[in-house]
Nucleic acid binder design. Structure first.
Length: 279
DNA sequence: ACGCCCGCCTGTAAGC
DNA sequence: TGCTTACAGGCGGGCG
C-alpha cells in the first residue's frame, strides 16, 4: 500500500486523533503483526496506561511517541491500515490489533497480507537510533536536502539506475513503485538512466520533481487504486491517482506529448513510462 | 559490495 | 462457469 504521501496522510490523521489520549486496553489477535515481541501480554502490558505524546514519520515508518518514553513503530508494508473505530463497530476480517483509549475510541491495525508490523522500542532512543530506521536515507519532505548536496550524493552512486536509486530506502526514504515512476515522468527521465549520464540541469529537474510530486501526493491525500487497499485513518480514499501521469496508465496518451504510456518489468516491478518524452 | 529474485500472505482479476 | 495463473503501494535474505 503506502508510500510517503499515504503514510504522511495517515500520520496527520493520527496526530489529530491520538495525541493526548491514554491507552486503556490492547487486544492482539494476530501475533504476526507484533512478531518482534515475545507474546501478546508483554506487548499489551507496555502500552496499557500510557499516553500518546506525538506522531512522527520517517520515510514509510510511523513513530508514535509515548509518555512512557517508549516509541511505537508501525510499518504498513503492502496492505496495512490504521483505522479509527468505536468499540461497537463490526471488526474487519483482518483486524490484528485493537487499541482502546480511556476516552472511548479505538485504533485498529487491519492488514490482509500480514506483511505489516508494529513494535515497541527500548525507552529513550531518538527515532534515528531505532535500529530498523538507522539505515534510512534523507526524508525528502521532512528533511529536504540542498540541491548541491543531493547532486553530491547522487554522483556517489554513479552507475545505479535511477528507479533503483529512488526506491532505495537507504539513499532516500519514502518513495516506492508508484511515486518513483511519477517522479521520473515529471523529470523527463527514463527509469534506466544513471546518475553519471545526467547533466546538471537533469539533476536539478530530478531533484525538483521529487519534492513536487511528493508534496502534490500529500496535498491530494495519497493514491488509492482500484482495489481500495489504501484509506486514511477515517477510512477515506486518497485522490492523487487522478493525477497520475504514468502509473497504471498503460496504452493511454501521455499528458505531456500524447505518446502512448508503456509498461515494462524492471527489477521485478511493473514500471510505467512515456517512451517518447522520457529520455 | 551489488543487483536480482524469491518468499512472505491474501485477494482479485485476467486468461484459458 | 470454474480452475489456474499472475499480480499488487514493501522489504529482507540468499544467491551468483
Amino acid at each position: 500500500m503506502p508510500e510517503l504521501p499515504e503514510v504522511e496522510t495517515v500520520r496527520r490523521g493520527l496526530e489529530r486523533e491520538l495525541v493526548g489520549k491514554r491507552i486503556k486496553s490492547v487486544e492482539v489477535t494476530g501475533m504476526r503483526s507484533i512478531r518482534r515481541h515475545k507474546n501478546k501480554n508483554e506487548f499489551a502490558g507496555r502500552l496499557e496506561g500510557v499516553k500518546v505524546k506525538s506522531v512522527k514519520r520517517r520515510g514509510k515508518y510511523l513513530v508514535i511517541h509515548l509518555d512512557s518514553s517508549e516509541l511505537l513503530v508501525v510499518h504498513m508494508r503492502m496492505s496495512g491500515q490504521l483505522r479509527r473505530a468505536q468499540p461497537k463497530d463490526p471488526l474487519d476480517k483482518h483486524t490484528h490489533v485493537v487499541i482502546t483509549f480511556t476516552q472511548g475510541g479505538q485504533l485498529r491495525f487491519v492488514d490482509p497480507r500480514t506483511f505489516g508490523e508494529m513494535f515497541l522500542t527500548a525507552p529513550d532512543v531518538l527515532s534515528s537510533q531505532i535500529p530498523e530506521l538507522a539505515d534510512l536515507g534523507f526524508d525528502p519532505v521532512d528533511e529536504p536536502l540542498a540541491v548541491t548536496e543531493f547532486a553530491r550524493r547522487l554522483l556517489g552512486r554513479p552507475g545505479v539506475k535511477l528507479k533503483t536509486l529512488l526506491m532505495d530506502q537507504s539513499f532516500m526514504a519514502g518513495v516506492g513503485n508508484i511515486y518513483s515512476d511519477e517522479i521520473l515522468w515529471e523529470s523527463g527521465l527514463r527509469f534506466d538512466r544513471t546518475p553519471s549520464q545526467l547533466s546538471n540541469m537533469e539533476i536539478r529537474r530530478l531533484f525538483r520533481a521529487i519534492v513536487e510530486i511528493l508534496h502534490e501526493g500529500i496535498k491530494h491525500r495519497g493514491s488509492t487504486l482500484a482495489d481500495q487497499q489504501y484509506v486514511d485513518v477515517a477510512g477515506k480514499p486518497g485522490d492523487y491517482q487522478q493525477f497520475h501521469a504514468v502509473y497504471d496508465r498503460t496504452g493511454l496518451a501521455c499528458r505531456r506529448c500524447r505518446g502512448i504510456i508503456a509498461r515494462e518489468k524492471f527489477a521485478g516491478r511493473s514500471t510505467f513510462f512515456c517512451p517518447d518524452c522520457q529520455v
